[in-house]
């Protein structure tokens, strides 16, 4: 038996919105510690790793490990029916073929209940393991989203060049070129506006703009995004949850 109650439906809504355009369905792996997902997009370029730790929930129990195969488009439609501020409880019996979803309005005496048919998903997992990191950039997630959108008008690739004191985002396309430079900044009054760059080794990596467009759909989940880059390796883009994370691993583009 799994039962997890979110204080606000908006959190699960944001998580599903951030994932559903990249992967159509995925397995939710539920254990006593929380719920995790690993899913790869069809082109096997972008991997999503989600961890919703037990502490994220107002109430949580999972007596036995269960795997719930979920169609994200369908889940999105159902959870779209609840108000952002509703309590949202998901539950499933062991060996269940459906996920029970209940919204409770905090003001009105109103309870809405839905069942989502579960899917049997046979997905092979990638062993991403712990990765070395050459450069780590933390910046406001809205700023990163704007950089990705602005650079996408120029090219289908975004180049990220990190040196000791700056990160350069560069696009070179048929119509012209664009550069955006950000530098570390500590904002004591607004810590969420701070930018940090830590570097062991300079980085010069390129990523596909269309995949970055998928990643920035997670912007509303966290005020900050942490980008971990390693030479000749996939980039990691992490949005922290109140307890857990939504992480994207994006394979780079190399010169032919």
């Amino acid at each position: 038996m799994l039962e997890g109650k979110f204080e606000e439906a908006s959190l699960l809504k944001k998580i599903v919105e951030a994932m559903k355009d990249c992967v159509s369905s995925c397995n939710f792996n539920c254990t006593e510690n929380g719920i995790s997902v690993q899913a790869v997009d069809n082109s096997r370029v972008l991997l999503i790793s989600l961890l919703i730790e037990k502490d994220t929930f107002e109430e949580y129990r999972c007596d036995r490990n269960i795997t719930l195969g979920v169609g994200l488009g369908s889940l999105s439609k159902i959870i779209g029916n609840g108000a952002n501020s509703d309590y949202l409880t998901i539950s499933a019996d062991d060996d269940a073929d459906k996920l029970n979803i209940i919204f409770e309005d905090k003001v009105k005496d109103k309870i809405s209940e839905y069942n989502l048919k579960l899917l049997d998903i046979d997905a092979d997992l990638l062993d991403v393991g712990p990765m070395d990191t050459d450069a780590t950039i933390t910046l406001p997630s809205a700023d990163f989203a704007k950089i990705c959108k602005d650079m996408k008008v120029l090219s289908e690739s975004l180049q990220i060049i990190v040196t000791k004191d700056s990160a350069l985002f560069q696009s070179v396309g048929d119509i012209g070129t664009g550069n955006i430079v950000i530098r570390p900044k500590t904002d004591i009054d607004h810590p969420e506006e701070s930018v940090t760059i830590s570097l062991d080794k300079p980085i010069d990596l390129s990523f596909g703009s269309k995949y970055l467009s998928d990643i920035i759909k997670a912007t509303s989940l966290s005020q900050k995004v942490t980008i971990k880059l390693t030479d000749q390796s996939p980039g990691v883009f992490e949005y922290k949850l109140p307890s857990g994370y939504l992480r994207f691993y994006l394979a780079p583009k190399f010169d032919e």
């Binding site: 370029v45 092979d124 190399f254």
Partner: peptide, 14 residues
């Protein structure tokens, strides 16, 4: 022109 790599080139399948 740049070539898009896939994750399978970096991570083994479990």
């Amino acid at each position: 022109k740049k070539k898009q790599t896939t994750l399978g080139e970096f991570f083994p399948t479990e």
